[in-house]
């Protein structure tokens, strides 16, 4: 850890002084760390993890003068990563709180429920990778068998099964996450 800290800090200080090579190395190393960071929190399949990596890299760049050269670099990087994660959750909450309220009120009002549920599911599915989304929408929504879904999507049957399993797990995590955010 101490080695990583001193390496990154040296690169950052050189980058701030105008050394583009050092700065590129620093950003690449930071991107690796950020990817780990967001994967651990959003799940490896999350498409938004890479978006967050890029957004955070841009923030590192535009706010690089907020780094005090006498302070630990990893603490600075971590604080920015965390801020962007919280910001992401806040945006998601705004986007999804309406859908979740609808689900709560819907239990009982079924004639309206079907169309609203379809909207929610579509929004949630956007959170999944293309393969998982295809697997779930073909088997669970369109009602195809695993073999048919495999044929249509060009994935193997086992890939469809794995996709459904992982995708459903991820959807459950997402919904749980929003509920927890709501409660807070």
């Amino acid at each position: 850890m101490t080695d990583l800290e001193s390496d990154l800090r040296r690169l950052m200080i050189a980058g701030l002084a105008g050394d583009r090579n050092a700065y590129r190395k620093l950003l690449a190393a930071a991107a690796d760390r950020l990817r780990q960071y967001y994967w651990r929190r959003l799940g490896r399949e999350a498409v938004e993890a890479e978006d967050l990596v890029q957004e955070t890299l841009m923030a590192i760049h535009s706010k690089r003068e907020s780094y005090d050269r006498s302070m630990p670099f990893t603490a600075w990087l971590h604080a920015i990563a965390r801020y962007k994660l919280v910001d992401h959750y806040r945006r998601m909450k705004i986007k999804y709180s309406a859908a979740i309220n609808d689900v709560d009120e819907m239990i009982g009002a079924d004639w309206l429920g079907d169309s609203l549920a379809a909207l929610d599911v579509e929004e949630l599915l956007c959170e999944l990778s293309d393969k998982h989304r295809a697997a779930i929408s073909l088997t669970k929504i369109e009602g195809y068998s695993v073999a048919e879904a495999a044929q249509i999507s060009g994935q193997s049957e086992s890939a469809i099964k794995v996709g459904v399993h992982r995708g459903m797990k991820r959807l459950a995590e997402i919904v749980e996450g929003y509920k927890r955010n709501e409660d807070r």
Binding site: N21, L27, L57, R64, E65
Partner: peptide, 13 residues
């Protein structure tokens, strides 16, 4: 690509 772009636009501070 983003990293390359950012590194290229980095001026001394």
């Amino acid at each position: 690509d983003l990293i390359s772009d950012l590194a290229l636009s980095a001026r001394p501070t």
